[in-house]
Amino acid sequence: MRRIAPLFAVLVLAACSSSQDQQAAQQAPAANTQADEAAKKLETYQQLLKLHNDGPAVQLGHEIVDRYPDTPAAVEVKKTLDDVEKNYKETTEKNRLAAMWLYQVSPMQGGTQSTATIQSSRPSGEEAVRLILRRHTDWGQSVFLYAVAGKGFVCKGDCSLKATFDGKAKIIKAFRPPTGEPALLFRNDAQFLKDLAKTKRLTIDVVTISRGETTLTFETGGFDDSKWQPLAKKKK
């Protein structure tokens, strides 16, 4: 019996070793398959980077890192993924802000006007208010708020509007046009434009006839002065 026990132990060890070898043999092809799949995706990832197609590249890069974490391809992707994703997010946000502005040149009451317009982020929809920068061949330069719907603003004579430019508090002097449009014209448009050029978020407190006291929010960071065309004064 004493001889049988060691022999049995040897057989058990041999069986375990054989089982482990089989598992390793089975796992090796699977690992190789994953590495091959990841390598093919890496080629696509690198091609997307060459084409500056960062959105799909970021998505594919995360797929490689998440699904094939222990492959050489994942190691390679990690070298660039963070920077690519950061640049992609910054570019996406820049494009989003730029798209909020509308630039137009059109005839207006016997002259020509060039406008840059942005709509409030809050309130939005039917309650939105437009901020309009205008150059006109007869009337010159002006900046004003225009109510998309409703009866406009409450303002007697000159009114002082509390505003913030990226959190910095300022006062904007404004008045209602005598012609009755639902608008508020700014007195010092030159100073406003100077402040606007370096502002990403603008708020203006107004009183509207339909809503009462309202804080308007404009995401102005995408303003491009080069797209707001200057106009020569009309010859008399």
Rank of each mutant, 00 (worst) to 15 (best):
A9E: 13
V10P: 03
V10I: 14
L11Y: 07
C16M: 15
S18N: 11
S18V: 07
Q20V: 13
Q26N: 12
Q26L: 15
A28K: 15
P29V: 09
P29C: 07
A30S: 12
D36P: 02
K41L: 15
L42D: 06
E43N: 12
Y45G: 05
Q46V: 06
D54N: 08
P56F: 00
V58I: 13
Q59D: 11
G61C: 05
G61V: 02
G61N: 05
H62E: 13
I64A: 10
V65M: 09
D66A: 14
D66M: 07
V77N: 06
L81M: 04
L81H: 03
D82P: 03
D83K: 10
D83P: 01
D83I: 02
E85I: 01
E85V: 01
K86Y: 03
K86Q: 08
E90D: 12
A99F: 03
M100G: 05
L102K: 03
L102I: 02
Q104V: 00
Q109A: 14
G111K: 03
Q113F: 00
Q113V: 02
T115I: 04
T117A: 02
T117G: 01
I118S: 03
S120F: 01
S121V: 08
E126M: 11
E127Q: 14
A128W: 00
R130D: 10
R134G: 00
R135E: 01
H136L: 01
D138A: 13
G140F: 07
Q141R: 12
V143I: 09
V143H: 01
L145H: 03
G150H: 06
K151H: 08
G152I: 03
G152Y: 01
F153Q: 09
V154I: 14
C155K: 05
K156S: 14
D158H: 10
T164M: 08
G167K: 08
A169E: 14
K170W: 03
I172Q: 07
K173N: 11
T179Y: 08
T179D: 13
E181P: 02
P182V: 08
P182W: 05
P182R: 09
F186R: 03
D189F: 08
K194Q: 13
K194S: 14
K194G: 09
L196H: 06
A197S: 15
A197L: 13
K200P: 03
R201T: 14
I204V: 15
T208C: 10
T215G: 06
T215W: 06
L216I: 10
T220K: 05
T220C: 08
G221Q: 10
D225R: 15
D225F: 11
A232G: 09
A232E: 12
K233T: 12
K235E: 13
K236R: 09
